[in-house]
Design a protein around this nucleic acid. Structure first.
Lengths: 341, 341
DNA sequence: TTGAAAGCGTTACCAT
DNA sequence: ATGGTAACGCTTTCAA
C-alpha cells in the first residue's frame, strides 16, 4: 500500500492524504478522520526512503564502531547507553543505525555517512584524550554528541559524561581513610579520556594524602577479564602486594576476584576490591558511604540525555547546547575493617 | 555531490556514471577509471535513500527491542551477538538498525517495518518457549533469523543457538560427581526458551542420578545482580542450604558471589558456584573439565553465523537454510573439593 | 559503449 | 480546503 493507491481508494489527491496524515491544520476534520481510518485499515505506512528523499532528512542517528574498539560493543556500559539513547530518539521519531569500520577508515565512513545522507547525526563513543574525530565531524558539519569528553580538544562540542576524576579521587580517599597505603589501580587504556581522568583522580588523592605513588601498582590496558586475573596474580606475588585494588571495570573485576580467590586469600580481609561499574544499589543502607558509580541505570539515563542534546543539535545546528554533567555517585557499605565491595 | 553534478562534471550521462560505479561490464574501461577517480576526488557517495527507492531494497537489517525486555539490551550477551552480526552484515553491504517498541506494539512495529520498507530482514532475539512473533513474521513475509529457538513453535524457521540443555546437564552432572546433593538453580525467566532448556538439562541430570528435586532450590526470574544477591541470601539462610549454585548469568553471579562473601562463607569451600556466561578461557589448562560455555567470543561468532543465514534468506526467501547448532562447551578447572569457577 | 526518459513514493510549492 | 506538479537522486528499460 502506498500513497497513490490510498488516495485513489479515497477519491482524494495524494496531497490531501499526505497532509491529513501529516497533521497539517488546513485539512477538513472529517476528511482527516476518513483518511486516518483508511490508512489504518489498509495498513498504510509511508515509505521511509521516499519520505527521506523528499524532505532531505533521514530521521536516523548513527553509531560508527571501529573494529579496533570492538570491546566498546561488548562493554555492558555501551549496551545500556545505547538502550537509553534509542528509546529517547524513538520518542522523537529518530531511528538508530550501526556501522562498522576500521580505525583508519573512520574518516571515510563519516564522510560517506554525511554524503549519502543516511544519518542526520551521530553519537561518538569512547573518546580518546585527544580525539581527531571531533574536529573531523565539525569539518563535515555532521551534528554529533560525545559520550565522554576529549580533554585534549579545545573546540566547542556537546558532550555528556560522568565525573570520572572526582569519582576515583573519592574512592581512593575512602581506601586511604581505611588505612590502605598500597592501593593498586587497574585502569583502562589511558589513551582513552575516561581512564586518563580516573588516573588523575587516583593520583590527586594519593598526593593530598602524601602517599607515595608506586608505578608498579598502576596498570593500564584494555579491560578484559583476563587482564584483571593476570594482573592481580602478578601483583599478589610481589614482595609488597597491594592491600586494596581499584578496578576500572566490572568485567576486569571478575578476573580480579577470581585471582584473589585462587591465591587462597580472602576478599575483604586480605585484599579489598572496589570496582567502578558495580551496581551497588541493592547494598544501599543507612551506613552507606557515597563514593562513585556508573550503574547500569545511570548509564542508561546518560544515553537518554545525550539523545536529547543531539536532537537539539540536529534541529538547529547553531544551538548553543548547554553542557550536561551527571553527578557521579557510588554507595559502599561501611565496614570497620578493609572495605569489601 | 550527487550523480547529476558528477555526470555533468564528467560530460557523461547519469546512466553511464551509474553503470561505471556499479561495476557493470558494458562500460568502457577508460571511462570507468575516469569516473571512479572523479567520484573519489569529489567525494561522491550515492544517496542511500534514492538508491533504495529505485531498487526497492533497503540493505538494512533490523532489531526490534521490546521495552519489557530492555534487559536484553543491557545483557552483555546481546552486545556481543550484535557486534558479530553487524560486522558480518557490513561485509555483505547491509546496515543495522534498532527500533524500540512496547511488548504489545511489536506486531504493529514489524508490520510498519515491512510496509515502509525500512528493512530487508530482521533478527529475533530472546525467543519465548512459545513465541508468536515467529508466526507473525512468516505472515508478513519478512525474512528473519532467530537467535535461540522457540520449542513450542512447530513451523520451520532459521535459528542459531547454543546447546543450553546439554550444557546445564553436564554442569549439574559435574557438581553431582563432586558429591553435591543440594544444587541450587538460579535460572532466567523460564518462559524464555533458553532458560526452559537449561532447566530441562538440570532436571535430567538430577533424575539420572536419582537425586531428589528440591523446588525450594529452583528460582526463575529476570537475571539481575540483585536477583542473584537476594536469592542467594535467602537460600543460605535455609535449614538445608545449597552446597552448590548453578547460575544462568554472569551478572546474577556477581550478586551470588557477593552474598556468599557477605555471609562470611568462603567460595569453593562452603559453597560452589558455576555461572553459565563466564569466560573461562584464561583458566584453561590440562586439568580442565569441559562442561559448557557461552563466552563473549562464542556469542560474537554466533552473531556472525546468524547474519550469514539471514543474508541467504533475504536473497532467496525460499532458500532452505540449513539449521545451525553451535556445540556448547565450557572448561572448568578440576578440583578435589567443591569446584569453584 | 553511451544516452534519454520513466519510475520509485514521498513532500512542498503554487494554484484554485 | 483541495489538487496538480515539480523535485528529491538513483536504477533500469529501451533506443541508438
Amino acid at each position: 500500500m502506498n500513497l497513490k493507491k490510498l488516495s485513489e481508494e479515497l477519491g482524494l489527491s495524494q496531497t490531501t492524504v499526505s497532509r491529513a496524515l501529516g497533521g497539517y491544520p488546513e485539512v477538513n476534520e472529517k476528511t482527516r478522520v476518513r483518511v486516518e481510518q483508511a490508512a489504518r485499515r489498509l495498513n498504510y505506512s509511508p515509505n521511509s526512503r521516499a519520505k527521506g528523499l523528499a524532505t532531505g532528512r533521514s530521521m536516523m542517528v548513527g553509531y560508527v564502531i571501529p573494529y579496533s574498539s570492538q570491546h566498546e560493543m561488548v562493554n555492558p556500559i555501551f549496551g545500556d547507553f545505547v538502550a537509553g539513547a534509542t528509546q529517547a530518539l524513538a520518542r522523537a521519531g529518530y531511528g538508530v543505525t550501526f556501522t562498522q569500520t576500521t580505525s583508519e577508515g573512520q574518516e571515510a565512513t563519516y564522510t560517506a555517512l554525511k554524503a549519502n545522507g543516511s544519518v542526520d547525526g551521530v553519537i561518538l563513543q569512547g573518546p580518546a584524550v585527544v580525539d581527531d574525530r571531533i574536529e573531523m565531524l565539525r569539518r563535515l558539519e555532521l551534528p554529533f554528541v560525545v559520550h565522554g569528553r576529549s580533554t585534549g580538544v579545545s573546540s566547542t562540542y556537546s558532550w555528556i559524561d560522568v565525573n570520572n576524576k572526582s569519582a576515583f579521587k573519592r574512592a581512593t580517599e575512602f581506601l586511604l581513610q581505611l588505612g590502605h597505603r598500597r592501593i593498586a589501580l587497574l585502569n583502562g587504556l589511558e589513551s582513552m579520556d575516561f581512564a586518563w581522568r580516573r588516573r588523575e583522580g587516583y593520583l590527586a588523592a594519593l598526593k593530598d594524602a602524601a602517599v607515595d605513588v608506586r608505578e608498579v601498582l598502576m596498570r593500564s590496558a584494555e579491560m578484559t577479564e583476563t587482564y584483571g586475573f593476570d594482573t592481580t596474580r602478578e601483583m599478589l606475588a610481589m614482595e609488597e602486594p597491594p592491600t586494596a585494588i581499584l578496578v576500572s571495570s566490572l568485567i576486569s573485576a571478575i578476573g580480579v576476584r577470581r585471582a584473589i580467590q585462587e591465591a587462597g586469600l580472602q576478599m575483604g580481609r586480605d585484599v579489598s576490591v572496589i570496582s567502578h561499574d558495580d551496581d551497588l544499589s541493592y547494598l544501599r543502607n543507612g551506613d552507606a558511604v557515597p563514593i562513585f558509580t556508573a550503574t547500569r541505570s545511570s548509564v542508561r539515563h546518560a544515553g537518554e540525555v545525550a539523545a536529547g542534546v543531539l536532537i537539539q543539535t540536529m534541529i538547529n545546528p547553531d544551538a548553543q547546547v548547554q553542557t550536561h554533567m551527571l553527578e557521579a555517585e557510588l554507595l559502599v557499605g561501611r565496614s570497620t575493617g578493609p572495605v569489601v565491595v
